[in-house]
Amino acid sequence: MIRVSEEKFDPGAELSAFESAAKGAGAVVNFLGKVREKAGSNDVSALVLEHFPGVTEQSIADIEQQARSRWKVDETLIIHRVGRLAPGEPIVMVCVASAHRRDAFEAADFLMDYLKTEAMFWKKEISTSGEAWIEPRDQDYKDARRWREEN
């Protein structure tokens, strides 16, 4: 399931619902990304996420489909916030359920690497030093590349 929303979500409740939906799976991996409180030495006051309605959801669906074609996955959940977020708030949640742990770990890792570099989101950080649009770091591109190099 894919959900892009301005609404806050409760990671515990989402994980619990996901576990119920993925009944029978032997492994559930959950990743939660949160808004950092510091950008270097500056205090972050907010993160503003933009998306392209329709196109963003399709870009995530493509990424999810790639994960499903590479690993044996029973269920996935991808939640991504948009709009204005405060430090400490959950921004992204990825859950993967599979029969055995390796598929779930690797598929979740892959989904996050691709959400960082391929999904249609734009992120502006507002901190004590001003406003700045954030682009993926070299490390983020490197992380995403390893899935192409491995296979």
């Binding site: 921004i91 999904a119 989101f121 734009w122 649009w133 682009e135």
Partner: peptide, 10 residues
């Protein structure tokens, strides 16, 4: 027509 700069999700 939409113009998109480099994306940054997550």
């Amino acid at each position: 027509i939409a113009f998109l700069p480099p994306v940054s999700g997550g």
